[in-house]
Design a protein around this nucleic acid. Structure first.
Lengths: 338, 338
DNA sequence: CTGAAAGCGCTTACAG
DNA sequence: CTGAAAGCGCTTACAG
């Protein structure tokens, strides 16, 4: 592979000029610029980012940390971030914590501090105060998506409010026995979403004068399979007959619908189901849901990050207000059976 | 942030010794090593990978390129690769081509050549010969997962054979009118899987003396939604009554099953459906399928890459033979209706 | 607009 | 086992 010196000698200029001509930083005459570009092209020269980073302090690489990549929300955010960042010439380095506390810590305490990143985007993760301080010390922008990190710019939807809305929808249909699927399984360090959505559910229920018993708040890990099992357990329980499920994610709602069907129940005649997300497949299930737009969230986060790095200017700051959501009424909710 | 010099002066040794003590390369006495490590800990020192890369030529960063991250197979491979690599102290830089030919080329012709990567893993993508040559010039290992790149070590299952097996299963049940869902939609540059699976289908059909008409080979993009629509179109078509669907992926099989149900048909009484993948949700659908294990593929690819970089030794080479698959018989296939 | 030179923060032969 | 020094391949004040 040719280096900047090869390009310089072929173009008959200094390496400094090559650098300026190719990066666009600093003044170069149009003529020399053309000569240099031609020389670079002929040699198939690609600058070493590693050398460039060390010299300039900019890595043109952004880190993203998320709990998993196997669920719709996360893969959607990731895809949008990658697209936006690569489009701007940036690399994206991915860290998946996998809900493993120790591994999460290793990522925050070691990987993220290696000065390989110009910025880091944290998706629904909440670093500890110590980790936050460490990150602050490296002096690189930190940006959050979904879930709030104190003192950190965050791209998000109004979790509590949309959960409240979903619950209100069910209440307005006449439901009172509404079970919530998606309580945190363990301490909710990572998936703050969960607890906010549960909070919205509780708020709406209480506003309607209902205090849901503990059994109505069903823990699940946001996967379809676990939600299926939980829903099934409930539906066969003679002591507990909800008329509606509010699932904290569409993927869990799919599980609930499948469980009902497998037990010979009709949705929504026998039981109503509502989700949150706006997963494409929801349409096939006729799922009523509140759509959030993870791709929009990811791209907003990427753009905001690029803005923080001075690469672009933003008309408005996507971290200053909630991103929009949309109530999608389909066929999985109806008044409770008489 | 403290640098290697800070650590050196605090430990009372040279920077060379700090480097040796911390990286483990070269000889250092146990005593000095301990002193250095203590000093590093006290200062919260984390070496700059950027500087280290430039000096050593090793970046401890591996690139992975895939068409999408939004489908089960890809997210599963990705998660396993990330886990294995991060565990070994490596970073993972992700590139998503999004089925965009131009963008794909930009990644291969520019991003991958920036000397930021020690190796690259390409998942079901086939670089052009020119791109391959470029990559070869940077002298970094290239590894493929799924789909074969000439001259490149590849981790894969026997696509043709498992597709043949799925088809044979249907044939052995007595089906003859078997439609294949998952033909390539466009030229199959990226998703080579598709065509191999179709080839297996054709081979089995021909061995049974059946030449499937073109309409039996239904194109789809591997998403549930599109497969649903395609299956539905077929099932209402009075001129074309298959008794079984062989779907090239489980996610498409879910769509086919849902389409059948929505039309009031029973699976498998009215129509049989078989998939390929081993998606967790398959169990909820009672889907008969041939499981491949993307996590195993991802982790094999990561380990092989690490081996190529001299980080570890492998007992056996996972690219030398097909990885294993498993026939999973559930409830979506049965003899055709009389 | 262009060049010479210092420097980014490490690693690694080379000596000892 | 340890240190002094060169060097990795760029960028960027500083002069001109």
């Amino acid at each position: 592979m040719s280096s900047i010196r090869d390009v310089a000698s072929r173009a008959g200029v200094s390496v400094a000029t090559v650098s300026r001509a190719l990066t666009g930083r600093g003044k170069v005459s149009a003529a020399t610029k053309a000569t240099v570009q031609a020389a670079a092209r002929e040699l198939g020269y690609v600058a070493s980012v590693t050398a460039s980073s060390l010299a300039s302090g900019r890595t043109r690489n952004i880190g993203i940390v998320m709990p998993t990549v196997g669920r719709w929300y996360y893969s959607s955010v990731l895809q949008a971030v990658a697209s936006e960042l690569n489009g701007a010439g940036y690399d994206l380095t991915l860290y998946i914590t996998e809900n493993d506390e120790q591994f999460r810590h290793k990522i925050f305490a070691d990987f993220l501090l290696r000065k390989r990143l110009d910025a880091v985007i944290s998706v629904t993760l909440r670093p500890t105060d110590h980790e936050l301080r460490q990150l602050k010390k490296v002096g690189r922008p930190l940006l959050a998506v979904g879930g709030i990190i104190p003192g950190v710019a965050t791209v998000r939807v109004d979790e509590v409010s949309i959960a409240e809305l979903a619950t209100e929808h069910l209440l307005s249909l006449g439901h009172r026995d509404i079970a919530f699927i998606g309580s945190p399984e363990v301490v909710d360090a990572d998936f703050q979403l969960t607890s906010s959505r549960e909070r919205g559910y509780l708020r709406a229920m209480e506003a309607a004068g209902i205090t849901p018993p503990a059994e109505w708040r069903i823990s699940a890990d946001f996967t379809t399979a676990v939600a299926y099992q939980r829903a099934r357990n409930i539906l066969v329980n003679p002591r507990f007959k909800p008329t509606a499920f509010f699932c904290a994610s569409d993927e869990m709602a799919f599980g609930a619908i499948m469980a009902a069907r497998d037990l010979g129940l009709s949705v929504p005649q026998d039981i109503s189901v509502i989700g949150i997300d706006g997963h494409e497949i929801g349409e096939l299930f006729g799922l009523t849901t509140i759509a959030q737009f993870p791709a929009a969230q990811g791209s907003a986060a990427a753009l905001k990050t690029l803005a923080l790095l001075g690469e672009i200017e933003l008309e408005s700051d996507p971290t200053e207000s909630f991103l929009s959501t949309e109530f999608v009424a389909r066929f999985s909710t109806a008044p409770p059976p008489a």
